[in-house]
C-alpha cells in the first residue's frame, strides 16, 4: 500500500537534488531534495513565502534552479494545474476550447476528461465567468487530457470554502485510484492537510520535516512553524474521511 521508501522503491517520476534558487535577490529555496514515485500522493505544506510554489514551478520547468538538478523519468506525462489563470473577460474562451490548449484534443477525449473532473456541464461556459470551484475543475480536466503519470496541483483549493476543499481532495483521491497517477499538491491550508497524502513535506525555504501526515503533525519542526493549534483540526479531518483510504491503491 505504501509506495514511498523501503525496499520496494521504484524509480522516481521526478527527483531533485540540492535545489537552490534566489528570486529578486531573496534566497527562496536552499538545498532542497525531492522525489515522487508512481502512485504516490505528496502534499507540500508551508507558510506563505516558504517557497512551495517556487518548488512546483521548478519541477514543472517554469523556473531554473541556481544550483542542484532535476531529473525526470523519460517521456514523463505531466498534468499541471496552475494556481490561477490571467483571466480577462476580453479573451472569449470557452472551457471546451481551453482544453484544446496547447494541442487540439479529440472530442471524445475532451468529453471524458471533463466528466472525470466533474466539469461535464461546463463545456460551453466562458472561463472568465466560472466560479472558483468550476474553474478549478476545468483546469483539472485540461491536466487530465494526456493521461498524466504525475498530476501537479499548485494551491488547488485556494478560493474554495472548506466543504469545497474537502470535495476537491476526495475527487483527487478517487482520480489517483482510477488513473493510477502520482499526485503532487501544494497547500497553505494547514488545517486541511489532505488525509489521503502518503507523505507530507513541510517546507520553509528548506525541508523542515517530512513523512506520513500524522507523523509530521507531531513533529517538533512542524509545530514550531504552525503552532500546536492545527493538530486538532488535522485529526478531525482525518477522522471524517478515514473510511475512504484503503483500496485506493
Amino acid at each position: 500500500m505504501r509506495r514511498n521508501g523501503g525496499a520496494a522503491r521504484v524509480s522516481a517520476l521526478i527527483s531533485a537534488q540540492g535545489l537552490s534558487i534566489r528570486l529578486g535577490g531573496q534566497e527562496v529555496l536552499r538545498n532542497v531534495d525531492f522525489a515522487i514515485h508512481p502512485g504516490e500522493i505528496v502534499t507540500v505544506v508551508g507558510p506563505n513565502g516558504s517557497g512551495k510554489s517556487t518548488l512546483v514551478r521548478l519541477l514543472v520547468g517554469a523556473l531554473r534552479p541556481d544550483a542542484g538538478q532535476i531529473t525526470r523519468r523519460d517521456g514523463l506525462r505531466l498534468g499541471y494545474v496552475p494556481q490561477r489563470l490571467q483571466l480577462d473577460p476580453v479573451l472569449p474562451l470557452r472551457v471546451g476550447r481551453f482544453l484544446d490548449l496547447p494541442r487540439r484534443a479529440a472530442p471524445a477525449l475532451r468529453k471524458a476528461a471533463l466528466e472525470e473532473a466533474g466539469a461535464g456541464a461546463l463545456t460551453d461556459r466562458l472561463l472568465s465567468e466560472l466560479s472558483g470551484g468550476q474553474l478549478q475543475r476545468a483546469l483539472l480536466a485540461r491536466a487530465l487530457l494526456n493521461r498524466p503519470q504525475l498530476l501537479v496541483l499548485d494551491e488547488p483549493t485556494q478560493g474554495l470554502d472548506q466543504p469545497g476543499s474537502a470535495a476537491f481532495y476526495r475527487r483527487i483521491e478517487q482520480l489517483r485510484a482510477r488513473l493510477d497517477c502520482a499526485v503532487l499538491m501544494v497547500s497553505h491550508e494547514l488545517h486541511v492537510v489532505m488525509s489521503a497524502s502518503d507523505r507530507v513535506i513541510c517546507l520553509n525555504g528548506h525541508v523542515c520535516c517530512e513523512g506520513r501526515p500524522e507523523v509530521v503533525a507531531q513533529a517538533e519542526a512542524y509545530r514550531a512553524l504552525f503552532g500546536t493549534g492545527t493538530q486538532g483540526a488535522l485529526a478531525l479531518y482525518r477522522h471524517e474521511h478515514s473510511h475512504s483510504h484503503d483500496g485506493a491503491a
Binding site: 514551478r57 499541471y80 496552475p82 489563470l85 490571467q86 483571466l87 479573451l91 499548485d154
Partner: peptide, 15 residues
C-alpha cells in the same frame, strides 16, 4: 496555440 496558452498562464506553457 502557444501564445494563447502563455497568455493564460506562462507557467502552464512551460509545463
Amino acid at each position: 496555440q502557444a501564445l494563447l496558452t502563455a497568455t493564460l498562464s506562462p507557467d502552464l506553457a512551460w509545463a
